[in-house]
Amino acid sequence: MQTDRDFTAALVRRAEQAGYRALVVTVDAPVNGLRNREQRAGTALRAGMEAVNLQGMRTPPPPSPETLLFGTPLLAAAPTWTDLAWLRGLTRLPILLKGITEPADAARTIEAGMDGIIVSNHGGRTLDGVRATVELLPEIVETADGAVPVLMDGGIRRGNDILRAIALGATAVLVGRPYVHALAAAGAPGVAHVLRLLRAELELAMTLTGCATIADIDRAVLVRGA
């Protein structure tokens, strides 16, 4: 959700018209964390590159030099549960909230009429020290109790990681960094290759743990250390 709510509404309509089947709202990062490696690298879009989906969006005025975050237009416009209710009334598309890390927020997500939960810590790049999503997943799954799908984001590098997440109750997983690296190295064919590798590794892990179908995967395939 952008600070310009009229633009956000237009973006939703564009997504509907383009045939998208769901909306994912990132709720754990109203502002970026301190990404010092990015700062040192001077990361910026190259000439001729721009965020094309955000063209025409009004941006909040810059804060005064005396302020940091609190009291700035950016933080004042950060979405709240009220804004999510507004979004829910704006579209019939399923809405999934990404960035849920607490059971209480999972329960409120369901109460708010959302259609899915994505357990995510933003790759650990927003708030340093947040627990790994694979640790957070079981308690969120328990809270949801089958009311909505629970997906997991973060740390998915091999098919075995997918097996573990499903065993802990995830409906599905999201894959980020492997796709980005593959796209940079080989374009669209690279992403397709990574997807094939992940599927092959998952099917191999399922075979070696005696799981003929996804539904057969449960905690019996896991061994917890002392």
Rank of each mutant, 00 (worst) to 15 (best):
M1P: 13
Q2F: 15
F7Y: 02
F7S: 00
T8Y: 10
A9H: 11
A10L: 06
A10T: 11
L11Q: 15
V12E: 03
R13E: 09
R14C: 09
R14M: 09
A18M: 05
G19T: 08
T26Y: 09
V27N: 10
V27H: 07
D28G: 11
A29C: 03
N32D: 15
G33P: 06
G33N: 10
R35L: 04
N36W: 15
Q39S: 14
R40D: 14
R40Q: 15
A44L: 10
A44F: 09
L45R: 08
A47G: 11
G48P: 06
G48V: 10
G48C: 11
E50G: 14
E50Y: 14
V52K: 10
L54Y: 09
R58L: 14
R58P: 05
P60Y: 08
P63Q: 04
F70E: 12
T72V: 03
L75Y: 06
L75W: 05
L75R: 06
A76Y: 02
A77V: 01
P79H: 04
T80K: 09
W81S: 10
W81L: 07
A85C: 03
A85T: 08
W86A: 15
R88L: 07
R88S: 07
T91S: 06
L97S: 05
K98F: 03
K98M: 00
G99S: 10
G99T: 07
I100F: 00
E102C: 13
P103M: 04
A104T: 13
A106N: 02
R108F: 07
R108T: 05
T109A: 11
I110S: 03
E111R: 12
M114L: 15
I117S: 01
V119W: 09
V119M: 10
V119D: 09
V119I: 12
V119S: 10
N121K: 12
G123I: 05
R125K: 09
D128R: 08
D128Y: 05
V130W: 01
A132E: 09
E135S: 12
L136T: 12
L137I: 01
P138Q: 11
E139C: 05
I140K: 00
I140N: 00
V141M: 04
E142A: 15
D145P: 09
L151P: 01
G154Q: 03
G154K: 00
G155E: 02
R157G: 04
R157Q: 08
G159V: 00
G159T: 01
D161S: 08
L163T: 01
R164E: 06
R164D: 00
A165T: 02
L168F: 03
G169C: 05
A170F: 03
T171W: 05
A172S: 06
A172W: 01
R177W: 02
P178C: 02
V180M: 12
H181P: 02
H181C: 13
L183F: 11
A185Y: 08
A185D: 12
A186G: 13
P189R: 02
G190P: 04
A192T: 12
A192Q: 13
H193W: 11
V194W: 03
R196G: 13
L197A: 08
A200K: 09
E201G: 06
E203K: 08
L204P: 00
A205F: 05
M206H: 00
T207P: 04
T207G: 12
L208I: 14
T209I: 06
G210L: 03
A212G: 14
A215Y: 06
D216K: 05
R219G: 13
A220K: 15
V223P: 00
R224Y: 13
G225R: 15
G225A: 14
G225F: 15
A226P: 14
A226V: 15
